[in-house]
Design a protein around this nucleic acid. Structure first.
Lengths: 196, 196
DNA sequence: GTCTATATTTCGATAGAC
DNA sequence: GTCTATCGAAATATAGAC
């Protein structure tokens, strides 16, 4: 049952390596060494180095695919409630896949270069960015409200990995963190509910 | 008056180039081309490529040097008020130097490799990280309070550049953004002041 | 699926003239 | 302070045997 394909094991190892050295400074030679075979063998499983990164990007893509639906099946513009539910869903999945998101953050420059070589389905990075740009430009929200939506986004996507990196005492309970950040995001998104 | 030294103009151009392509994928050849001279000339001004990045890092370092003092001249552990003042001061300086912070974020992997080659004064990156780790491990705060401090940090340091990248209508007034995010951070830092 | 080569390219860096 | 020319290293990628 614990049998992962070689391809998946390469991605696992690549995730660790890319996190340690950064994508650009990690060499396929070292990745191959860690896998126990040679560089050329990697090219049997992946056509290029950036395809390995793309493989990891797709893993993350599939993680937020479902939460993303929470923003979809509204007919009108997105509601604050839907957005909050989306962020909470992301938070949960991030905690279970912290390294994947950390990679994405630390190697944003490399991620941005992932292009669409195929036809319709891209899996690229700029697709998500375009979507975010549209979301945060929703004219039915005030400027302040939109700023708050971005702030909540920042809390959801960067706080968890920062916290686990910076707290000297190991990781806190995931449920505790999620609950607390859920409160924070709720507060951030709804300015009216605070006293004066 | 508008006379910047060649060294400074190289740093200006490097900031733009590194932002576009990422530090690792930007070549000194292209940087030299943009400057209007050759690669070798760069080596007259900087001993190595990473020294150019270090130059940009030092620019940012000098920006937060003064806000950092707000955390220093307390005798006891840091107060929430001092921390909030620090974040607000950073926010202000970030807005005036957005690109510098964006570079730092997008090339975190490369920044982490900036080492200390000299003696006492480093200007390295891990110095700040160590400081942050210490701050967020302050035992006089509860776990939730510390989490909130990290969240406020995320709001201060990532929201402004995200906002100016994602809002389709150009940049909002800096003062408006700063005021709004100041409110948000205040809210985030002080859980007690909200109704249930 | 993995191996041993090797091709190819690109880049950082140096030497020395002007 | 900027140039030409070149070195040497390292990395991606390919060809073809097993």
């Amino acid at each position: 049952m614990g049998e992962r394909s070689t391809r998946e094991r390469i991605l696992d190892e690549a995730l660790d390596l890319f996190l340690e050295k950064g994508f650009d400074n990690a060499s396929l030679r070292e990745l191959a060494e860690r896998m126990g075979f040679t560089k050329a063998a990697l090219y049997y499983h992946f056509p290029s180095k950036s395809d390995i990164l793309m493989g990891l990007h797709l893993r993350m893509h599939s993680l937020i695919d479902e939460p993303l639906k929470l923003l979809d099946d509204d007919d009108g513009p997105v509601s604050l409630d839907a957005y909050e539910a989306f962020l909470n869903a992301c938070l949960e999945r991030m905690q279970a896949n912290e390294k994947l998101f950390a990679l994405h953050r630390a190697n944003q420059a490399a991620m941005s270069k992932l292009q669409v070589h195929n036809e319709g389905h891209d899996g690229g990075h700029q697709e998500l960015e375009e979507r975010a740009r549209k979301l945060f430009s929703e004219p039915s929200f005030s400027t302040e409200q939109r700023l708050r939506m971005v702030a909540a986004f920042a809390v959801a996507f960067v706080t968890p990995v920062m916290a686990s990196n910076l707290f000297s005492d190991g990781g806190q309970e995931n449920t505790v963190v999620a609950a607390c950040l859920g409160d924070v995001m709720h507060q951030v998104l709804r300015p009216g509910e605070t006293p004066q």
